[in-house]
Write a protein that binds this DNA or RNA. Structure first.
Lengths: 226, 226, 226, 226
DNA sequence: CATGAATGAGCATTCATTCAT
DNA sequence: GATGAATGAATGCTCATTCAT
């Protein structure tokens, strides 16, 4: 029985060790991604050196290559993780019950919450500059497009489920792009005016998108109920 | 006398030659700027090589340096000229008489006209990625900000001259940024859907900004009168 | 008693296990050498990576280091084993009785037999390119020289035992090198014309070396008797 | 007339200047090739660093790239120049009148003369190790083969113009390879015994190839007449 | 002992910038 | 003043080698 136990213990130890190492490696990979997002988002693709990324992650350069193979793949991994987290965040947030207005309001809040948490990822996805032409830029363009569609959905879904009138139904595509652009513009302003409370930003967003300038002029302002 | 005439002729020739040279030099400088905008806007700051810019301008590389001193200064010169031309275009376009709606509509048309003519400059100003931190990025940020304010003026001026109501008056700043973002988003969609007529893009723009989603749902669409 | 037996059994088991392990280790070492020869001979010293060698041998990289210490030592081990096998092969082949011609003929056959079996080792010894200067290249040069002398012996021994005339006796050293070079050239041709039967290659070799161009012109050809 | 002269002088100066610069550049390119041959021939392809080559040539690394584009192209340029010079040397040397023996003797002398002058090029062409697989190794293999054929021609041409007897006529191909191998072997010996006079090496070469071991045993030695 | 994981040192290549002409 | 040629400094990537387990 003691042998059995010893055997089990050894096995357990070994198994635990393997598991530990795998977990540590995975954690390291995440840390590298975090560092890469930080560097890529502030310096852009070209000016971000693998040295800087490795240094920021606290690992050696070959470690970065061991995890992601090349600068291109690392970049793609960054925006893919960013896109995935974005998707999860929007899916996870329960849209408020109630009319279209309430749904859009909660969507905006979820969006701003996520951007606040993941500033760098937002920058990489929506304010990254030109990439060298090649497979990377194609891949990245695809991910960006999907994420754009995700956010645009906030607008178009609301519109459609509210039963939009007239020819505007044909315009959901450009309206979606306009909506994402609005978000980018407001968030850029928010980043430059970091002391503005998130709630105010959301209110500006909501009123601009929902009431439009015409509504604002006529005093049709919207506010959350609570 | 013949000598005098010869001397005069020579002087005239020389003077003309100097003037010619100065003009030629200025033209060359413009050509270099044009080439730089073309390259910078498609490849981004880092991937644009001085070789490529010189080649595109049809001059030698030291000529580029003789005109602009450094890559950084060249980049700044690009966006400063772009910003200036932007300013001129918005100033030159006579805003239609009539109510606020008509003024905004004509402003949007002027904006789209200019972007159509100067696609590269628009890209450099509003879709250029991150720049390496340093004096350049500061300078560039300033120019971007001024140009943003210029375009945002379309929104805020209209709003103010229409006598906006309530607390919205405090929000002119973020609303301006939102407006510029909207323009960016729609124009990006336009670049991806180049067959969309400019008038349609303007209509989407106008209705999105003026009526908002609420207005669209309720069928408050706007159309130009002619 | 049961304990004793158990102990004995355990001891026996352990002893057997140790022996097994030692044998296994030796076998592994041989496998590593085989892999190293395969990789070194096709890619050359520098382009052969320890990763590739370990992978080909089916062991991990540290295992390779545990056996041979370093890439240099591994390379040296390769050519030393190759040289040793060469020596054994030439010693083991019984030189045919008969006159000098018969002896040289059988020596050539033994040489070609061995090269056919150990193509990679031949390449490493006689067609490996330059090595980085240092202790390795010195060591390797020594092994190459010994092996060259071994093969050259085929020529010089024959010559001497045939009682060579005149000043040619002084030239045994360069003649030996010429002989090895002849072998290299012919074998390279054989590798490029792999369908040539070994016997033909040996005949070319023999006639070239024994009769020389003068003899060939005069029709003094040699053929084996059987 | 003075104007004319001035114009001519200026033009001449400029032309001379351009010509000078072009010549200087060409000389620099040659110097780089020389340095590359020196490094490649002693260290082999992989261990030769562009740094070392540039340093040896006394120019900067980018200068090397400006002339040859890449390490691969530089390597190819080396062996192509080497092959060309080889070809020229063999063509330029007037083969002695007289019988086949005299012709081969003068060919051997020309070969040794050239090798003595261009030791590094000989090493690159005939003792260069494995190259990384790719277009370079293909190109290099082609050049090597052509040069091999050139040298082999010394043997085969002599044989054929002497009207060779019997079945040996079919064996010119392997005999040519054997001949080149012989040259490699003897020259390697010469390089290791640099005090051996060239004439002696040529004599060994000639007797080995012409008389063969059989001839040597029977005392059929050959010597030049003068 | 055998291994997965990590790293320091090195190499080919590029590019903004500067002279000699 | 305009140019061909040259360079210093950086960057992406690889590989022999070594530990913790």
């Amino acid at each position: 029985m003691s042998m059995t136990r010893t055997g089990e213990a050894a096995q357990a130890t070994t198994a635990a060790s393997f598991a530990d190492r795998r977990r540590l490696r995975a954690e390291r990979a995440e840390a590298v991604l975090d560092a890469a997002v930080a560097i890529f988002s502030t310096r852009g693709y070209h000016d971000a050196s693998m040295d800087a990324i490795a240094a920021r992650a606290g690992v050696s350069k070959p470690a970065v290559y061991s995890h992601y193979g090349s600068k291109d793949e690392l970049y793609v991994a960054c925006i893919e993780r960013a896109s995935g987290k974005f998707h999860d965040a929007l899916e996870a947030g329960v849209l408020a019950a109630g009319g279209p207005q309430e749904r859009m309001w909660s969507g905006i809040m979820i969006l701003l919450d996520h951007v606040e948490r993941e500033r760098g990822e937002w920058s990489m996805l929506f304010q990254g500059g030109a990439l060298p032409p090649g497979p990377v830029s194609v891949e990245v363009a695809g991910v960006r497009e999907r994420t754009t569609a995700l956010i645009a959905g906030l607008f178009t879904d609301t519109a459609e489920c509210a039963g939009i009138a007239g020819s505007a139904i044909d315009a959901m595509d450009p309206f979606g792009s306009a909506f994402v652009g609005t978000a980018e513009g407001l968030i850029r302003w928010w980043l430059d005016n970091a002391d503005a409370p998130k709630g105010s930003v959301a209110m500006y967003f909501m009123n601009y998108v929902w009431s439009g300038l015409g509504g604002l002029i006529e005093g049709r302002l919207w506010m959350p109920e609570d």
